[in-house]
Nucleic acid binder design. Structure first.
Length: 573
RNA sequence: GCGCCCGUAGCUCAAUUGGAUAGAGCGUUAGCCUCCGGAGCUAAAGGUUACAGGUUCGAUUCCUGUCGGGCGCACCA
């Protein structure tokens, strides 16, 4: 990997130039410029250090350029440009050796040790076990699973986890809804609960219940618990199965109920009390609304989140003695730390973004490191069909599910579309476009490049030709399209590092589209399989390297890299 | 009213933790197959980065304000 050697070389050159950056080597900004004229790597250290060094940036840059140890490294030249940028250019030897190196690295090309084995926990989807998964869950699943793979790729120990809210009011309501549906079937009068779950899936579920047992439960005063448990296990299993079909699995499905059972919830409350951030009162000491009639509900237990950046204090335990969702949630994050994770990343839906400050405040109140928890919001998804928004009503239980989406456009395509956009941005998902198996669909564009290369490699193999394991001859390296492709492939490790560090999975598909385009240009400029065996083998090595990088990138996304693609039967023309 | 997200080509979106001349796809227009997959390639056109200030060597990026879109503001999750 180029990044560490470049960093070390720069630190050494800066020291020679009289500037010591020993303690902040990793903060040196290194970038791959988008403008090819600016070299293969660039840094602005001379500009950022000019002020403290009290020297003009260009003077620093000149000194660094002179002292930079080029010998034995990937670079052949370093130039000073503009106001004081340092631009590094790969030597031909480095580029020539790259295809063979990618071949030998195989699926590990792009990986690094940047994360030094730090344990990270990514919590995502974590949908309530009250119904099918929706499209935002689908988006979060694509983003979260990719994030786990990205973190692993840069050397973290990363795990994905699904937090199941299988306790509390929502699941009780689910039980009551199911009981009502069963009663309805059995011809027993029973009111459907207000705000109950309307979805048709509960009717199906009610039909599948063991008749006698359900009737008995219905007759008992505490019978909804039976229906709740029945519904819960069924729904969780559906969710797990759908996610599996989608290609997303978790290291652990963590049950909220286990926190109650183990006493972790009570323990967390005591830990907070010990830190003197809890009080009992009828209304909050900070942030209360004067005309809140709810104040009459009696004394609740409050957490002083307002001391840690929240606008008001929050209820941990209701006046009736039942904890709000917040307390077990704090217990859950406390548990993550106790399990040895040094860093947690949560991916939440758009309806939870108002909860970020209170969660962070709660963890601060607990004494957690300020950067322990990072929360990403997987923004809203608007489905478009025929150019019109698809109408959905969560209340009535009418919405497009993850399962519908997979049936409609396929898991690969759905994931690719979700990952194309930055997580925090609203997303318009054009179902018609995603369904189209043609050139308008970027998922197919990338997969097609992979299949096309695989096809060329097969064609070559039939003629007894295989990729060369030798350095690329300079005659090939001088072809602009070949050189551009190899340079693009060389940036993959840095792309992976950047996407992981910045928590921006969307950089991967963006890169893959560019890489696929670079390959297609190479393909058009250079016939790969010719009568010239040596040349053919060299070009096969370049093509094979491109295939490997595209495959590695698609693997990060959890999208398949097909060896061949059947053209779907053209619609009547 | 308060908080958060967003505003970039006709449309959907990028722009590498403040970098150099803001880029792709679709759509439009004009081209490219005796040859390895044309699901491809080449070129043209398309921009006051919503608006107004500020910070600095440098702002699509950071800060303030205005306008517009979305979401959230429970002793629900």
């Amino acid at each position: 990997m180029v990044w560490p050697t470049l960093t070390r070389g720069l630190a050494e050159a800066l020291r020679a130039a009289g500037i010591d950056v020993a303690d902040r080597v990793e903060r040196i900004e290194l970038q791959i410029p988008r403008e090819p004229d600016h070299g293969d790597w660039t840094t602005n250290v001379a500009l950022t250090l000019a002020r403290e060094a009290k020297r003009p940036p260009r003077a620093i840059a000149e000194a660094v350029a002179k002292a930079f140890p080029l010998a034995g490294g990937p670079f052949a030249a370093v130039e000073v440009a503009g106001p004081g940028f340092l631009n590094f250019r790969y030597g031909d030897a480095f580029l020539a050796a790259l295809p063979a190196r990618i071949a030998s690295d195989g699926t590990t090309f792009g990986r690094s040790e940047f994360g030094r084995g730090t344990a990270c926990l990514v919590e995502y989807v974590s949908a309530n076990p009250t119904g099918p998964l929706n499209v935002v869950n689908a988006r979060a699943a694509a983003v979260g699973s990719t994030l786990v793979r990205l973190l692993e790729a840069i050397g973290h120990r990363a795990e994905g986890e699904f937090y199941v809210n299988d306790a509390g009011r929502q699941v009780d309501l689910l039980g009551a809804s199911l009981a009502a549906r069963f009663a309805e079937r059995a011809g027993i009068a029973r009111a459907f609960p207000e705000d109950g779950y309307q979805g048709a899936y509960l009717r199906d579920l009610a039909a599948a219940l063991p008749e006698a047992e359900a009737r008995a439960a219905l007759a008992r005063p505490d019978g909804t618990a039976w229906f709740r448990d029945a519904a819960l296990e069924r729904v969780i299993e559906w969710q797990r199965r759908d996610l599996e079909a989608y290609g997303v699995t978790f290291a652990r499905w963590f049950r909220e109920s286990s926190l109650h059972a183990s006493g972790a919830v009570d323990e967390t409350l005591r830990a907070l009390e010990a830190r003197d951030v809890v009080y009992r009162a009828a209304r909050p000491e900070v942030g209360g609304d004067e005309d809140e009639p709810e104040a009459a509900q009696g004394e609740a237990t409050w957490l002083r989140t307002s001391r840690f950046g929240d606008e008001k204090d929050r209820v941990l335990v209701r006046a009736n003695g039942v904890p709000t969702y917040l307390l077990p949630d704090i217990a859950y994050h406390r548990d993550k730390r106790a399990r040895g994770f040094r860093h947690g990343i949560d991916i939440w839906g758009p309806d939870h973004h108002g909860h970020i400050t209170r969660m962070q405040a709660a963890l601060a109140a607990l004494g957690a490191e300020p950067d322990f928890l990072e929360i990403l919001i997987a923004q809203q998804v608007n489905l478009l069909s025929g150019g019109q928004p698809v109408k959905m009503s969560k209340r009535a239980g009418e919405f497009i599910t993850l399962r519908d989406l997979m049936d409609d456009v396929g898991a690969d395509c759905a994931k690719f579309f979700f990952l194309m956009r930055s997580t925090s941005a609203h997303l318009d998902f054009d179902l018609d476009l995603a369904k189209r198996q043609n050139d308008e669909n970027p998922a197919f564009y990338v997969q097609y490049a992979h299949a096309r290369i695989a096809s060329v490699l097969r064609y070559a193999a039939e003629r007894g030709l295989a990729a060369s394991g030798e350095a690329t001859p300079s005659a090939e390296l001088e072809i602009p399209e070949a050189r551009a492709l190899i340079r693009k492939l060389a940036t993959f490790p840095e792309l992976v590092r950047g996407a992981a560090v910045m928590r921006e999975p969307h950089r991967v598909p963006t890169y893959l589209v560019e890489t696929a385009a670079a390959f297609h240009r190479f393909y058009h400029a250079c016939r790969v399989v010719t009568d010239d065996a040596a040349r053919s083998r060299a070009r096969l090595a370049i093509a094979a390297a491109a295939r490997q990088v595209i495959a590695n990138g698609l693997a990060l996304m959890g999208v398949s890299a097909p060896e061949r693609m059947e053209r779907a039967a053209e619609a009547a023309t």
